[in-house]
């Protein structure tokens, strides 16, 4: 009996060690045969040995051998369970885990859409709403309501594509501002993105169609300081916290005072006198803005003594060109997928 007990312990010890090494289905199966095999399994053989154990000890010895068989079985099953829950890595060509994954092609938004959404997100966060309007406009909404007298040379800067009668292709999205002011009462806080059209001879930075976003705030007590603060916040959100911003006087018929807004040149930081982007000035003109002209407010029956407001306009294409270092505006409209697909990520 003492002898059998020692042999049981020895088999258990050997099994434990062998079980630790069993790493795949094949070695597991070998282990099962070696210990539980019907003829020559180590545990099976112990049952044979029981026959030679004296009768008064048989009961105890049988219990021990059965216990061993039970624990071996449980352990083998456990290992099998583990192995089957982690199947061997298999892909198209076997077990090479370095092969590329399988993925479905997901389309990419147009870079101008992406950039427009980026701008919209910033303004939506400041409580602005998005408004739209027609692309074929009338002279009144595109010019007259915005304080461009007929035959004024100021119209030259907004060179126009005419349709028929007083219909034209809008040269900016300002008509949307006029339409919103006509139909709603202050407070107003909107941005107006969209296509605009000008009779421009195409060159790297001018095309007869481009995307613009304009913005308008009208309320009591709105000042030039709000214009500055909000546009600085916007430009920092778009170009980074550290970007330098400069406001300088300018002229637009629909704002008074008017301001052109420059940001520091990201290309040369003002260090390259021959810089293609800033011409060595270190500043890049990025948007036009100003306090809404009192005549524009009067035209839409808003009392300029009670309300004031500010507006801005920015070319999405040119801003995106500047942000991404794209030299030609026309790339946006060639729709070459090798160009477009570069922009879907952030």
């Amino acid at each position: 009996m003492a002898n059998l007990k020692e042999r049981i312990d020895a088999v258990r010890k050997e099994f434990d060690e062998a079980a630790r090494r069993a790493a795949d289905a094949k070695s597991l199966e070998e282990l099962r045969t070696a210990y539980l095999g019907r003829k020559r399994g180590h545990v099976t053989l112990l049952f044979e040995d029981l026959k030679s154990v004296p009768a008064e000890e048989k009961r105890e010895a049988g219990r021990l051998v059965n216990e061993l068989k039970q624990s071996v079985t449980v352990r083998l099953d456990a290992i099998e369970g583990q192995l089957s829950s982690v199947p061997p890595a298999v892909s198209a060509a076997g077990t090479d885990l370095t092969l590329p994954g399988r993925k479905r092609y997901v389309g990419r938004p147009h870079p101008l859409t992406l950039f427009e959404e980026e701008i919209e997100r910033i303004f939506l966060g400041m409580g602005f709403s998005i408004e739209e309007g027609p692309e074929i406009e009338t002279d009144y909404y595109n010019f007259e309501a915005l304080n461009f007298p007929p035959h004024h040379p100021a119209r030259d800067k907004w060179d126009t594509l005419f349709i028929k009668g007083d219909l034209l292709l809008r040269t900016h999205t300002s008509p949307v501002q006029v339409r919103v002011m006509e139909r709603s009462k202050p407070p107003i806080r909107i941005i107006c993105p969209g296509r605009v059209f000008r009779r421009e001879t195409p060159d790297p930075t001018h095309l007869p169609m481009f995307m613009q976003v304009e913005g308008l705030v009208i309320d009591e007590g709105v000042t030039f300081a709000h214009l500055k603060g909000t546009l600085e916040y916007f430009l920092r959100a778009l170009f980074g916290e550290k970007i330098k911003v400069r406001f300088r006087p300018s002229f637009f018929p629909f704002t008074e005072p008017s301001a052109e807004v420059d940001i520091e040149c990201l290309v040369c930081s003002g260090k390259d006198p021959a810089c293609r982007v800033c011409g060595g000035t270190g500043w890049k003109e990025i948007l036009g803005s100003g306090m809404v002209d009192p005549q524009v407010l009067k035209n839409v029956n808003i009392d300029p003594e009670k309300y004031s407001g500010w507006a801005f306009g920015l070319g999405i294409d040119r801003t995106a060109m500047f942000a991404y270092g794209i030299p030609e505006m026309r790339y946006f409209y060639e729709n070459d997928l090798r160009f477009l697909r570069q922009f879907g990520t952030k």
Partner: peptide
């Protein structure tokens, strides 16, 4: 939805 369908977005001239 369309990007998810594997289509790329384009923007063409209004002209």
């Amino acid at each position: 939805t369309l990007l998810g369908q594997g289509l790329d977005e384009v923007i063409n001239w209004s002209f």
